[in-house]
């Protein structure tokens, strides 16, 4: 069974003369337990797809089914929130500045009707490598990497099946990036999660994903496996160009 299926998704922003097509007839499916990447330059519409699935973008057309549930507009059912969670790009913007880690996590659990919150918070904090000492801290007492760990813990709090990752490491230092990526990889194998990850960094996608779609101007250029990507076994010139420039930047 597929965790996510998208058919002919279009997203328009603005209206009249300023109407722009952010996503153009995009179709893909993500199998349960798979880790799927969306790569492309900025403005290619990759984050928009993630936000459409999460219900944060109004006015899209097409068909999306997530875990057997067909999605409409911005409305999402209670069951959806339990199954699908998201980790945002900027950990400095994704945590409420006036709420302690404890408050953030316990509210996430309260909303899903989870009891036995105290024990679970301790476990969650251990799972993301923070430890119980961080429980009553405010975001401004945490570093960027620690904040992103809190954001991951919040996403894991309802015990979801699918995690949407919107460039989870791009706002972090390189050394911290590796830590977070390893954490995400470990969590996936431990909890059997399905990932959809957006990134402009091919290295990050290569590390975490099994399959990736290359996007340009709101369209899928190519969907290919990571092995094929490593072998430079591609059909489209744009993908080749992207891969070559990525390799060059490493050297």
């Amino acid at each position: 069974m597929n965790a996510i299926e998208a058919r002919g998704v279009d997203v328009y922003f603005g209206s009249g003369a300023e109407l722009t097509r952010a996503v153009n007839d995009v179709s893909f499916e993500v199998a349960q337990g798979e880790s799927f990447g969306l790569v492309g330059e900025s403005g290619s519409g990759k984050s928009t797809i993630l936000r459409v699935i999460a219900g944060l973008v109004p006015g899209w057309t097409g068909e999306i089914t997530v875990a057997g549930e067909s999605l409409q507009d911005e409305k999402r059912s209670r069951a959806f929130h339990k199954k699908v969670q998201m980790v945002f790009q900027d950990p400095y913007a994704s945590l409420h500045p006036r709420q302690t880690v404890d408050r953030v996590l316990s509210e996430a659990m309260e909303l899903q009707g989870i009891t036995d919150i105290n024990r679970r918070i301790t476990r969650l904090l251990n799972d993301v490598g923070l430890g119980a000492g961080f429980r009553f801290r405010y975001p401004h007492q945490l570093s960027g990497g620690q904040r992103q760990r809190v954001a991951i813990a919040r996403a894991l709090a309802p015990e979801p099946e699918i995690l949407l990752l919107d460039e989870p490491t791009s706002a972090l230092d390189v050394s911290v990036q590796a830590e977070i990526l390893n954490l995400l990889a470990d969590l996936r194998s431990e909890l059997g999660l399905t990932y959809v990850m957006v990134s402009h960094d091919l290295g990050v996608v290569g590390h975490l994903c099994g399959r990736a779609a290359v996007m340009k101007d709101g369209e899928f250029v190519e969907v290919l496996g990571i092995d094929a990507m490593r072998r430079l076994d591609v059909t489209q010139p744009y993908t080749r160009h992207l891969l070559e420039s990525s390799i060059r930047s490493i050297r």
């Binding site: 339990k82 998201m86 994704s94 954001a151």
Partner: peptide, 8 residues
């Protein structure tokens, strides 16, 4: 957005 996604 995050809290909306959590179902609030």
């Amino acid at each position: 957005h995050a809290i909306r996604l959590q179902g609030a």
